Amino acid sequence: MSRPTPYPVRLADEITRQLGQLSDHLSQLPPPQAAQVIARILDPDNGILGGVTHLVATGSLFAKDQAEQGTLPAQAWLALGRAANELHDIALDLDEHQDTLQRLGTQPATTAAKPSTPAPLVVRRRR
């Protein structure tokens, strides 16, 4: 007889499924709505990125305890800690763009007086 799946495991599966749905919706949204969604995702206090960062940091604390007991390799704890630190740094880097995304998400769609000039994102070297 199989054991029932614990609620936290089901919750993690459901969140993963919903993140996939959000990605699908995001790819089809008009730019102002996409900017609103991205701004909410990146919100440092209430956004998904902050939540995932906190979750990984919490996982790192668990892994540290398990590594100290010898039930988990220390490398697993170090990797989770490094991931939490990297996610935190990424969130800090993205936080400076939060206001711009929010502004873009609240602009009326009909303000097309002058088309914006695209910024070059890739610089190619000549051979």
Rank of each mutant, 00 (worst) to 15 (best):
59 G>N: 15
80 L>Y: 05
41 I>L: 15
53 T>H: 05
19 L>H: 11
113 A>E: 06
108 P>Y: 07
24 D>Y: 11
43 D>N: 14
31 P>E: 05
94 L>P: 01
14 E>K: 10
110 T>N: 14
26 L>A: 14
42 L>E: 04
88 H>D: 15
37 V>M: 06
41 I>R: 02
69 Q>F: 11
84 A>E: 13
86 E>P: 00
88 H>Y: 13
121 L>H: 03
3 R>V: 03
35 A>C: 11
2 S>P: 10
12 A>P: 02
47 G>R: 12
28 Q>S: 10
72 L>P: 03
48 I>E: 03
57 A>K: 05
98 Q>T: 12
10 R>S: 11
33 Q>P: 01
116 S>W: 03
5 T>E: 15
77 W>G: 01
121 L>A: 05
88 H>W: 14
14 E>H: 11
110 T>Q: 14
9 V>G: 08
97 H>Y: 12
79 A>H: 08
16 T>P: 00
24 D>P: 00
126 R>W: 12
39 A>C: 10
98 Q>I: 07
14 E>N: 09
126 R>A: 12
50 G>T: 00
12 A>Q: 12
49 L>I: 13
93 D>S: 08
12 A>W: 09
43 D>F: 12
49 L>E: 01
106 T>W: 03
45 D>L: 14
62 F>V: 14
68 E>W: 00
34 A>Y: 02
98 Q>F: 14
42 L>C: 12
74 A>G: 02
89 D>R: 15
18 Q>N: 07
11 L>Y: 15
55 L>P: 00
28 Q>A: 08
95 D>I: 01
108 P>Q: 08
71 T>K: 12
86 E>H: 13
46 N>L: 04
31 P>Q: 02
110 T>Y: 09
82 R>G: 09
70 G>F: 03
81 G>C: 09
99 D>L: 05
6 P>A: 09
54 H>S: 02
106 T>N: 05
113 A>C: 07
20 G>R: 09
106 T>S: 11
20 G>C: 07
42 L>P: 06
97 H>M: 06
4 P>F: 03
69 Q>P: 00
30 P>C: 01
105 G>I: 13
78 L>Q: 05
36 Q>P: 02
43 D>M: 14
66 Q>L: 14
46 N>G: 01
30 P>Y: 04
80 L>N: 04
123 V>Y: 06
10 R>Q: 15
13 D>A: 09
27 S>R: 15
88 H>N: 15
119 A>P: 01
74 A>L: 01
123 V>E: 08
94 L>D: 00
95 D>L: 01
51 G>I: 00
45 D>V: 15
92 L>V: 06
51 G>M: 02
44 P>M: 14
67 A>R: 00
